[in-house]
């Protein structure tokens, strides 16, 4: 893991992608900090950080687009497969290298609250502020994990970057969209049934077995309908909750409202684990094709 980490960390810094990403994050957060704090004289750095989270992290694909696509295109993945390191170590090495690059601007942000106390009015709640910086770091890592997974699906860096940016935009705007989604129970049931069918299709494409796919779909749909008949109240507002659930930019907002939200950390860590796992599976699956 250490070897892959060192290689990727170094190549991100010498290959400029890391430098561009660090600069972009610093510039966006810097601009928001200047506007919010020097104009309105707030001491709470978390306001600027949360406001800048979307704009600064939209550029994450610059960092992640190469991670697996480039290996596949240059056929260097054959070297990784033949070295005595496990697929999990390779994926974790790559993920941690990108997380370490992202940690550089986050470390710089740790100085901002201290600087702000000299200029702004009002006292500073250090726990909240540093809690928000940690949440921002984990949010960035979750987005890195998602984009790394997308990079493992294609050998084209450009496609990887475009799909990643589309994914970030989608999860961001879905949050605003979720307010317009009907809260009726029947609508939620429909959404759940569609999701069940998607899962059934994934089961079919993974196993190439019609019976497995149909069985999985039937079991899930029947279960969803039974729950609907027994306890329809569970479905009220479920669709909009699910959609807000996939919006990664929402949980960090709690810190702006003065709530130290542990569940946000848990949410981001689960997302990271999920997408690292998915990347390991995709990278491993390519050996079996």
């Amino acid at each position: 893991m250490g070897a892959v980490f060192k290689k990727d960390f170094k190549s991100a810094l010498t290959g400029m992608t890391g430098i561009i990403f660090i600069t972009a994050v610093l510039v966006f957060v810097g601009v928001f900090t200047a506007i919010i704090h020097f104009d309105q004289r707030f001491a709470q750095f978390e306001y600027a950080l949360i406001s800048a989270s979307f704009a600064s992290l939209l550029l994450t694909p610059i960092l992640t687009m190469r991670s697996f696509s480039e290996e596949r295109k240059m056929k260097t993945d054959q070297l990784l497969y033949s070295l005595p390191i496990s697929t999990f170590q390779i994926v974790m090495g790559k993920f941690l290298a990108m997380a370490a690059i992202f940690a550089i601007p986050c470390a710089v942000f740790c100085l901002y609250p201290i600087v702000l106390t000299f200029f702004a009015e009002g006292s500073l709640n250090y726990v909240m502020t540093y809690g928000a910086i940690l949440a921002y770091f984990l949010l960035g890592c979750a987005i890195i994990a998602i984009c790394m997974f997308i990079s493992s699906l294609t050998e084209s860096q450009v496609i990887s970057a475009i799909i990643s940016i589309a994914a970030i935009l989608l999860v961001y705007f879905l949050a605003q969209f979720s307010a317009y989604i009907p809260t009726d129970d029947w609508f939620s049931l429909m959404v759940v049934v569609i999701l069940c069918l998607v899962v059934a299709f994934i089961v079919y494409s993974a196993t190439k077995n019609y019976i497995a796919g149909v069985c999985a779909g039937a079991v899930l749909v029947i279960a969803a309908v039974v729950v609907y008949i027994v306890k329809p109240a569970l479905y009220v507002g479920l669709a909009s909750q699910m959609i807000s659930g996939i919006c990664v930019f929402l949980p960090i907002q709690a810190f702006g409202n003065g709530v130290f939200d542990i569940t946000a950390y848990v949410y981001y860590l689960s997302l990271i684990a999920l997408f690292v796992f998915a990347t390991v599976q995709t990278f491993e699956k390519r050996r079996w094709n």
């Binding site: 260097t76 033949s82 070295l83």
Partner: peptide
């Protein structure tokens, strides 16, 4: 894999290194 060294058909080189 510890017992094997492998050179694939196309040398798997990181060209920027």
């Amino acid at each position: 894999k510890r017992c094997i060294g492998y050179l694939p058909e196309m040398p798997p080189l990181y060209l920027e290194m």
